[in-house]
């Protein structure tokens, strides 16, 4: 599988100079996909409490919200090298618009940061405050996925 994949890529390279190997971007893909997994884990903690599936725990909610805010403060440029879009390589759903419309992508990442910050401010104030604040983060996630991520199925 891996070998035939490499052959395909080499064949493509022969006709399209400048096309990169997916392996060149493996570290960047792992890092950025890892950051989204960290976000999902912490959103799971908060969402479970917002839904009422797990008991509200102010201290844990605060930690999870702080983690989200911290992720939002990571500079994104090193994670998104030019050429690591889903048209150029396998293993990513990142659309070329992330690079073609950089300002919009960064504005949407910034909107996530603002929503995470507001969530962090209310996370320890009780279960009822969580719902709308987690919802606002979800809205920020969705806005970026709508514009810049290939749908999954």
């Amino acid at each position: 599988m891996k070998i035939s994949h490499a052959i395909c890529l080499s064949a493509a390279l022969a006709t399209a100079p400048g096309l990169a190997f997916a392996q060149d971007f493996e570290a960047a893909l792992k890092a950025r996909q890892g950051q989204f997994r960290i976000m999902a884990l912490n959103l799971g903690v908060l969402g479970g409490m917002a839904k009422g599936e797990v008991a509200y725990d102010a201290a844990l909610a605060e930690l999870a919200a702080e983690n989200l805010e911290t992720i939002s403060e990571l500079h994104q440029a090193p994670l998104w090298p030019e050429g690591s879009d889903n048209m150029a390589i396998d293993g990513t759903r990142a659309l070329p618009s992330i690079w073609d419309d950089r300002a919009d992508f960064l504005a949407k990442w910034d909107a996530f940061g603002k929503a995470a910050e507001q969530l962090e401010e209310v996370a320890d104030e009780g279960q009822s405050a969580l719902g709308p604040a987690v919802g606002a983060v979800g809205k920020a996630c969705g806005a970026c996925h709508d514009a810049h991520r290939q749908p999954s199925s």
Binding site: M39, A40, L41, L43, G44, G47, V134, G135, G138, K139, C141, G142, A143, H145, D146, R149, Q150, P151, S152
Partner: peptide
């Protein structure tokens, strides 16, 4: 209401709208 799946991935494409 939020776009979050049970795995806390989030909706994309037309469904995000």
């Amino acid at each position: 209401g939020t776009g979050f799946t049970p795995d806390y991935d989030s909706a994309g494409g037309h469904m995000a709208r």
